[in-house]
Design a protein around this nucleic acid. Sequence first.
RNA 1: GCGGUCGUAGCUCAGUUGGUUAGAGCGCCGGUUUGUGGUACCGGAGGUCGCGGGUUCAAACCCCGUCGUCCGCCCCA
Length: 417
Amino acid sequence: MAEKVQRVRGTQDLYGEELARFDHVVETFNRVRKLYGFRRVDVPVFEFTSVFARSLGETTDVVSKEMYSFEDRGGESLTLRPEFTAGIARAYISNGWQQHAPMKLAAHGPLFRYERPQKGRFRQFHQLDAEVVGAAEPAADIEVIAFAAQLLRELGIADRVTLQLNTLGDAETRAAWRDALVAHFSAHADSLSAESRERLAKNPLRILDSKSEGDRELVATAPGIDAFLTSDAGQFFDTVQRGLEAAGVAFVRTPALVRGFDYYRHTAFEFVTEHLGAQGTVIGGGRYDGLIGSMGGPETPAVGWAGGIERLAMLVAEPEREHVEVAVVATGDAAQGYALTLLQRLRQAGVAAEMSWRGNLKKKMERAGSSGADFALIIGEDELALSEVTVRNLATGTQERVRMVDVVAALSGDVEA
RNA sequence: GCGGUCGUAGCUCAGUUGGUUAGAGCGCCGGUUUGUGGUACCGGAGGUCGCGGGUUCAAACCCCGUCGUCCGCCCCA
């Protein structure tokens, strides 16, 4: 087999417009999270494997097949983080952060999952993450969802995304509902798809979002969670729904929206779009009151979400191209020296400027044009002799002579205007 | 893990009854214009047709494998 220089499957080399979209998503996230008082947190890219294995349950496919786990030189089993939540929960426990509770935390960065790549699905991918740790109040659920909704609005994609909302109730609710579902589906097991029969044993809630046409009927007649909600759980969900209405966040009650892991409680939500094929969830989250306790920490209620940066980036409008404001064009050795001085003065005055390095005047002007600069500053022997600079507006093609001493001030004014 | 699709210049793609030196547009470089970009015209560079093997006198084209892409499924923390 011939050796070929290529990137690892499911990874990306980001540049140009793609990266501009990516950065735009992250910058918007950072701006909006400040409005909501979420503070940045940064946790390691790898952790002891037990951090993720324990939080997810040892036997799941996720742990056994979909994590990048390896042994380091000291013989420790480590895993590249497949999610933020477990790492943040671990940090909360390790550092005794309960003293800061409730904490409103925001993170973003690369995550790793060994999966079959598709559009919007990579092996190294990136997420935004928001968590409120140490708050049992439904107000926290409302807050994280409102944050996500505003993020989507400010990204300009709110009209292409729908908020689906559900409750999984408290532990008691969940157990009772689960039993009822198992009873319902077991009674009709012969008409379930083969895959859903598997789920019946491993993860019965997941039958509810089965894509099999044949399962739909059974799902439609399955018991809903509402009949099993304890009064506390029902009240909690009511408060969340009323709060979202008060906050002006539209949602659709989606009874089939479930989570596979036991530590999820109460609120579950996803912002979904129909514009990305099968990878339609752009932000997903919920309340995970059971997680930190199950990892060996103090029983700590928490709620949060994660959003796929690549998927969000695919939905946002093309950002304006990054470009310098001024291109300095010099001809002749004497002018070259002066141009360097001018170039630095412009930059120090806060004007984005660059200078073409090669070619004759024509080439340098071409370069200036394709750089997207608003102005070209032309300095040759004529200008130098008069201590002037030719300022050419590259959009209109008009140009004028400006005294060298006035150029920086004139341009910083023009560029800002 | 399963099924399907596709893989030709930097990019988007054309190119079958298998047949001599593999094409276009855009981009890039140079020129028409040796102090002026964006338009126009002229010219040029750039490809072991993903990779490996097979069939054949002959393979970009057919077959097998492999790597990668995309679309579903599974999974979805």
